[in-house]
Write a protein that binds this DNA or RNA. Structure first.
Length: 810
RNA sequence: GCCGGGAUGGCGAAACGGGUAGACGCAAGGGACUUAAAAUCCCUCGGAGCCAGCUCCGUGCCGGUUCGAGUCCGGCUCCCGGCACCA
């Protein structure tokens, strides 16, 4: 009988489950101390209604291979899975159908779990968590109370991204080009009272600690850019006729002699006061207009706009009076919301100055031949008094010293990173664990009052007033609070989806603990995550938020590492067969259920890995999976004949030298490539070994058995079946990983290539330890080489032992 | 515009201290087995040239370093991702 995955896969999945083989050993259990831990984690999925598509299991297969491989290497492996199960889709579904999001979510989770189990992934299912479960979000709420106590959570009236269509505010990150990331609805600015998390307090550490992480450089760069550190100075420009000064931030204090005007943001609090009576109307009109325009319009606008306020500042460097303008190219959210404009050295300022006919003064010598407008490069200072002649870096330092000395300013570091808008006007999220008391104060709920669970609601639509559906549930909102003795109101907002995923990797350590979020000894043993795998789409948001929370927990002594994820790798996307992104609307979605039914889980796993390098985007190919299936079929036929009996070629006899070499090379290569997550080439190596054995009339067990073990992390069901039918009683999951014998890795003869003037002219089979001089002589004597060297002058001969001989002739 | 990543046969890809370009697989073509088909096995498979043997060309484009460049350096083009008036 042929290789039939459907016959063997469910049986082994059952066997693994029955024997609890995926369970991680707790640090307190016997045996744990002797083994090194390995925590391998997937970015857990949002369980959508559509179920898995083949993109999901790519990363999960990769981590499963690593988990299984590490177990065979003797590690105590923690490999958990859970659900990021709060979120908008289930809530939208509820609005349409009236089905409670919890019901939808449960059904979706059941479907996802069923699908993942079909792959034979070796998750420790006893640790499964769901962020929407009260037993989980109870601790999410608890962490919020810690953040609040640290002064890291606060309410602020902020201009938020209000999306009328979704009836909610969105985080900056959820707004793409002025439209909602979900649904593409227009988004406008609107001031509202919102919960914020002070992630900016950790900006410097979030930046600095990237250094020590084994993450792809591209991801580190994305985070660095997102944090956007820039060094400069804050400087006070005295306002003429006022007894105060306008404070600006600049990264180019060296150019201050060239500051010919000032700009403040339309949102700047002083706009109204600074406007002179003559300019008041124009300023007011401009500010109103700016407020009305959405971010989208403001960004789309190419021309610079602005209005003179009528106010004047003193340039502290030159003593000159310069005008203060209001313009929307200056943002209130960065620096001080005001700038000194130096058109000579800033492209935006140049453009503005040209538009409004403001003076331009160069203060950095442009290089010879420079014919551009603003010059932002390096060069000696000119027209700059005591700075003249200094290069940019030196001039900056000198100017800052001067400003500090005169009490006009100070060194300052700014970040692009903003505080994290942490509330959403939604139902299906964590309620905030606090009460707003009648006296205006806030009372955090105590741990014994958690979880604060979601009430049942009849209608899931937002209130439309900027408040979420909870605001309408008066009996839930209003509390006669016994502990404070006051009447109180709850918070109608809920937390964003990111909240639950900020710490799930910690809950996996101790998922059923109902008196603390995790036990210290478990955290100490398992953390940090040794390998974290997921898509690049989480490069900044999830990974930055989780790092932030983790650092807060670290500062509180609740976790033992400063960083949660020591090693991070990204998997690419599986594209549709046509090379497009897989999506329902494009009609190119591949459903794993179908593939597994037709080819088996092992074939699908193997194919996903064989497709190409893990981190790259790769198109799905139906005929490709058939090829991988054929490979497994060939492996099967290495062992069994047509009658499903052990093949007569499988012997107990000795292994000949050629097979030894093939086997040990395979062990060596597969081991290295698995370690390096280069699964595609590891599979190639196994194919090469299979091809080698295929033609042989003698296939000794002593060669086949190690091969089965190599195959086991990749195609675990097939490997188990082979192992068991070779007569082994127990599962191979904890068999020792084969070790390559170096004796079989050294080759006794090697091919040396001979080049003449860089072109390949001959190849020699020589002993691996042949004398280089002798090889050189042989090469020069070769007729094929002589053909190219005869009658020419040999200028040079380069010998790379075991590799090549390169002859240079003239 | 700025910051990443990428470009190798008909296709997915190998080659990563510069050293035989195309491993492995898919597709295609030919052959064996079969009454036939499927499955399986074997052979061919970058392009060109009076294709056994051999020669020339060939890793997005142009130049450079080197005995030798897919790999290193300089300058481009195109594609993908991120950021985008952040002073």
């Amino acid at each position: 009988m042929a290789y039939e995955p459907s016959r063997i896969e469910p049986r082994w999945q059952q066997h693994w489950a029955d024997h609890d083989l995926f369970r991680a050993v707790e640090p307190t259990e016997p045996g744990a101390a002797a083994r090194t831990k390995f925590y391998v984690l997937d970015m857990f999925p949002y369980p959508s209604g559509a179920g898995l598509h083949v993109g999901h299991p790519e990363g999960y297969t990769a981590t499963d291979i690593i988990a299984r491989y590490k177990r065979m290497r003797g590690f105590n492996v923690l490999h958990p899975m859970g659900w990021d199960s709060f979120g908008l889709p289930a809530e939208n579904h509820a609005m349409k159908t009236g089905t409670h999001p919890a019901v939808t979510t449960r059904a979706n989770i059941d479907n996802f779990r069923r699908q993942l189990k079909m792959f034979g992934f070796s998750y420790d299912w006893s640790r499964e968590v769901a962020t929407s479960h009260p037993g989980y979000y109870r601790w999410t709420q608890w962490i919020f109370t810690l953040l609040y106590q640290q002064g890291l959570a606060y309410e602020a009236e902020v201009a938020v991204n209000w999306c009328p269509a979704l009836g909610t505010v969105l985080a900056n990150e959820e707004v793409i080009d002025g439209r909602s990331e979900v649904g593409g609805h227009p988004v406008e600015r609107r001031p509202m009272k919102q919960w914020m998390l002070r992630i900016t307090a950790y900006a410097e550490r979030l930046l600095a600690d990237l250094e020590g992480l084994d993450w792809p450089d591209s991801i580190k760069d994305l985070q660095r850019n997102w944090i956007g550190r820039s060094e400069g100075a804050e400087v006070d420009f005295p306002l003429v006729g006022h007894d105060r000064a306008l404070r600006i931030f600049t990264t180019r204090p060296d150019t201050m002699f060239g500051a010919t005007y000032m700009v403040i943001s339309p949102e700047h609090p002083w706009v109204r006061e600074l406007a002179t009576p003559a300019q008041a109307a124009a300023v007011q009109a401009y500010v109103d207009e700016a407020r009305r325009r959405s971010d989208r319009d403001r960004q789309a606008a190419k021309e610079k706009t602005g209005v003179f306020t009528g106010a004047l500042c003193l340039n502290p460097a030159t003593g000159a009076e310069i005008p203060v303008w209001v313009a929307d190219y200056v943002m209130m959210g960065y620096g001080t919301g005001a700038i000194m404009a130096v058109p000579g050295q800033d492209e935006r300022d140049w453009e503005f100055a040209e538009t409004f006919d403001l003076p331009i003064l160069r203060t950095v010598q442009t290089p010879a031949g420079f014919d551009g407008k603003a010059y932002t490069g390096d060069g000696p200072a000119i027209n700059s008094g005591f700075l003249d002649g200094l290069e940019v870096a030196g001039a900056k330092a000198r100017m800052i010293d001067w400003l500090v000395d005169k009490g006009l300013g100070e060194r300052k570091i700014n970040y692009k990173l903003r505080d994290w808008l942490f509330s959403r006007q939604r139902y299906w999220g964590e309620p905030f664990p606090l009460l707003k008391l009648a006296d205006g104060s806030v009372r955090l709920l105590a741990p014994d009052e958690l979880p604060l669970t979601l009430p049942e609601v009849g209608v899931y639509e937002p209130a439309g007033t900027g408040e979420g559906p909870l605001a309408k549930i008066e009996e839930w909102m209003n509390v006669d609070d016994a502990r404070s003795g006051q009447l109180a109101r709850r918070e109608s907002n809920t937390m964003p989806q990111w909240a639950g995923s900020c710490w799930y990797y910690l809950r996996f350590l101790d998922p059923r603990n109902d008196h603390e979020a995790w036990a210290r000894d478990k955290e100490n043993y398992w953390m940090p995550v040794d390998l974290y795998l997921g898509g690049t789409e989480h490069a900044v948001l999830h990974l930055l938020y989780a790092r932030f929370w983790h650092k807060v927990l670290f500062d509180l002594g609740l976790v033992s590492t400063a960083e949660p994820f020591q090693k991070l790798r990204n998997q690419g996307m599986i594209l549709g067969e046509n090379g497009d992104k897989m999506s329902k609307s494009r009609g190119n979605v591949v459903n794993p259920d179908d593939v597994i039914r037709d080819h088996g889980a092992d074939s699908l796993r193997l194919y996903l890995m064989f497709l190409g390098p893990l981190e790259r985007d790769k198109p799905w190919s139906t005929s490709g999976i058939e090829g991988v299936h054929r490979f497994l079929d060939r492996v099967w036929r290495l062992f069994f004949d047509e009658n499903d009996a052990l093949h007569p070629a499988v012997t107990d006899g000795p292994v000949d030298d050629d097979v030894q070499r093939a086997l040990h090379r395979c062990i060596d290569q597969v081991t290295q490539m698995t370690e390096d997550l280069r699964f595609n080439t590891a599979i190639s190596q196994m194919m090469i070994f299979t091809n080698e054995m295929n033609g042989r009339a003698q296939r000794p067990r002593a060669a086949l058995e190690p091969f089965v073990l190599l195959l086991a992390p990749y195609a675990p069901h097939l490997a188990e079946e082979l192992w068991s039918r070779l007569g082994h009683g127990a599962s191979l999951m904890y068999e020792a990983w084969p070790v390559a014998d170096p004796r079989w890795l050294v080759r006794d003869t090697v091919t040396v290539v001979v080049q003449v003037n860089g072109k390949l002219r001959d190849q020699l089979e020589v002993a691996a330890d042949a004398d280089p001089e002798l090889v050189k002589e042989t090469a020069l004597a070769s007729p094929k080489v002589r053909q190219w060297t005869d009658g020419k002058q040999i200028v040079k001969v380069i010998c790379v032992p075991g590799k090549l001989v390169s002859v240079v002739v003239k």
